[in-house]
């Protein structure tokens, strides 16, 4: 890969770079911020309710044959 393409990550490993990325969290003290946070909580609760049980086993079991 061209050296230019890596110049911005040279001081980090990929894992660090990803984990340092600021997460999109709203400002803590504002009312809209609190509303957004409870909206996110509610969304994640709903998704928790439909996610397949035993994530590791489910993902491991998803094996496909070749395609185009």
């Amino acid at each position: 890969m061209a050296s230019q393409e890596q110049k911005n990550v040279s001081s980090h490993t990929e894992e660090e770079q990803l984990d340092e990325t600021p997460l999109p969290t709203p400002a803590p003290d504002s009312e809209s911020g609190q509303a957004a946070t409870s909206g996110v909580d509610e969304l994640l609760d709903e998704i928790d309710g439909v996610l397949e049980t035993n994530a590791e086993e489910f993902v491991r079991g998803f094996v496909q044959k070749g395609g185009q």
């Binding site: 990803l18 997460l23 969304l43 994640l44 590791e56």
Partner: peptide, 21 residues
């Protein structure tokens, strides 16, 4: 949002499940 709530690293199998599902 999941990573923030549950403090997950990218290798957590639940993130792979979210990608699939």
């Amino acid at each position: 949002q999941y990573r923030a709530r549950d403090n997950m690293g990218w290798k957590d199998p639940r993130l792979a499940l979210i990608d699939l599902q």
